[in-house]
Design a protein around this nucleic acid. Structure first.
Lengths: 357, 357
DNA sequence: CTGTTAGCGCGTTCAT
DNA sequence: ATGAACGCGCTAACAG
């Protein structure tokens, strides 16, 4: 009852396995027209499906692309995954998924698993961490990637290079201008807002979060504004919610004279911003009446949120696509000096959630 | 520069490949304690990573689970994917992802690709279609699945069995009580709403959509209400938006005497509902003041949407988990007669978007 | 242009 | 308890 093999097909067609292979799977030189047809029919009638494992073993290349995310249900990663998936399809490859929760240890395991499967390339989409507790994990992850690359694997990382990874062939980084974009967001916000700013950030050491915090502060400084206080919390909705509760208390508590300067909250990603907004609302506050709020990423599913969330648009899907393509050189016969892997740019998008009115 | 092999490890440890294999990968009988240690060290120092392709070839089983979705960026599928991923991890397997856009032809290709990779099991998460245009595609898909199962593959489908698929060993269906839940939703809605109902459904022939439409109509009927008009549109946000525009015109246009009965709109999934709501808003209408609206699925990311969306909560993550587990028998040594694959239940969740006030 | 031979890296019988 | 030999299904280098 096992699937039929190439040998069986060959036998039925009355040819050698090699010939059958040449007909059915892409080979340089094509057999005669008559033979070709016979083999095709035999394969058809047997319902032959090539064994990719065996092909991989023989060719030492698996047609697999490994994708590492923190959480596939997070719309940020889901969007990137879609881009990766598309690019993979262009390359006639399949995507292997690994969800790690963000820890370097689990990421290392994922890389090892991909290496074991002989994935042709690996895309790492989650933010890097440089916390001291992750130091050892990062080192091991770096070592694993290093080995993977040395064995001919291709790696693309979104955002930041893995801490401690040796730059080498096959190791690509799709840089995301988080800092610069956060700076511009701060600039535009500062231009239309008189009150104070507060930043709701992820845990210190999360590079993506840190970049955005730093950029935002820079933007404030250049605008002649005082630095914003930074609240550290989890890098997800519930972290945003917690911060929101805290801020709500603060907004309502003090001698809130009618002229108390309103707060503008910058959450370092949209999902956190939504959480923060939910908390404020739960505490009876209105946006942007009682406080303004801005996010980052411009998650598609959140675009219908009201009041519309000011944010920075990131081409998530493109990022996934670019990362995947970077692991393959230029798509189908283009040239150029390892042409810029396609610069990622974002766009500040001010909406109602930060309107002063 | 290629990765080191088991043979190399064995040589370095001064043992035979067979022994090395027994030590490094799970085998019944364990070699001597001293040998074991030597092999371990050799493997360590060489950075040995087993070649899963070769293992798979030898054992004819790949440790792979194939997951088929319409679109991984759709939060519905992303949630299911998370569940699948978790269950896969329990089974020490990896997830292979295929995005098909929903067409049976692409689904067939995905199944073939999974079969080629010798995936141990396949989870199909997208809704089935029984449109006549998909008839041939369905038949081929069914045939492909059939063959896959006959070769020992395990299949789990979420919602409906593939149209035309032969029921057989290894073919599981995780049933989702869409119809019943829609019926209950209609009942609860009817109890608190005097106006008319309209249904925003997906294209006719999409089984999930059809079930929900049918169930809703049944619920209305049992409540003594007239059948609702059904608008057919795309099964996604933009489809919902289009329907919303149309409905907005209708709501505003007629001799809208102050006592015109308000409309309650049931969109067959949350994403469509959000689209519809966005369109109404864009046309200057308010929810639930000018019209009520309800969805289906209770997508997590959409829970912070305001006004809070009435919907039917579906345990999406569990569904993914159950489907995956169904392909494996009971998890790690449980017993019972192919115990109910874990019944999926949902819960009507009324929120502000359908408040009569 | 076709068939033959020899591995790819590993698990698993068998003997020993 | 260990090692030798074979086969998983296929591709690639040869030979014809």
């Amino acid at each position: 009852m096992a699937a039929s093999t190439l040998t069986e097909v060959a036998r039925l067609a009355g040819v050698s396995p090699a010939t059958a292979s040449r007909v059915l799977n892409g080979s340089a030189r094509k057999p005669g027209k008559d033979i070709t047809e016979r083999v095709r029919q035999a394969a058809e009638s047997l319902g032959y499906i090539p064994n990719a494992q065996a092909q991989g073993l023989a060719k030492s290349s698996s047609g697999l692309i490994g994708l590492i995310v923190h959480d596939i249900a997070d719309p940020y990663f889901a969007a990137i995954a879609r881009g990766v998936q598309e690019a993979a399809r262009e390359q006639h490859k399949m995507v292997l998924l690994a969800t790690t929760g963000g820890g370097p240890t689990e990421e290392r395991e994922a890389v090892a698993a991909f290496a074991a499967r002989r994935a042709d390339s690996i895309v790492i989409a989650g933010s890097r961490s440089c916390r001291t507790e992750d130091q050892d994990g990062n080192a091991e992850l770096a070592a694993e990637l290093d080995r993977y690359c040395r064995n001919g694997g291709q790696v693309a990382v979104v955002g930041h290079p893995v801490v401690g990874a040796t730059v080498q062939e096959g190791y690509h980084v799709v840089r995301v201008p988080n800092q610069e974009l956060a700076r511009r967001l701060a600039a535009e916000l500062a231009a239309g807002w008189d009150g104070d700013f507060v930043i709701v950030g992820g845990p210190e050491g999360l590079l993506t979060s840190d970049d955005r915090v730093r950029g935002f502060q820079e933007g404030l400084e250049r605008a002649g504004r005082p630095q914003a206080e930074v609240l550290r919390t989890a890098f997800n909705r519930s972290g945003g919610y917690d911060a929101g509760l805290q801020l709500a208390g603060r907004i309502k508590a003090p001698g809130s004279g009618e002229a108390a300067p309103k707060l503008c909250i910058f959450a370092v990603n949209d999902v956190m911003a939504i959480g923060t907004a939910a908390a404020l609302r739960a505490e009876g506050l209105r946006i942007p009446r009682d406080a303004a709020i801005a996010g980052f990423d411009d998650i598609e599913t959140l675009r219908d949120f009201r009041p519309a969330l000011s944010t920075v648009r990131l081409p998530l899907e493109d990022i996934g696509r670019l990362a995947t393509r970077a692991t393959r050189g230029r798509p189908d016969g283009e040239e150029g000096e390892e042409a810029a892997p396609g610069a990622v740019t974002g766009e500040v998008t001010l909406r109602r959630s930060t309107e002063a009115a």
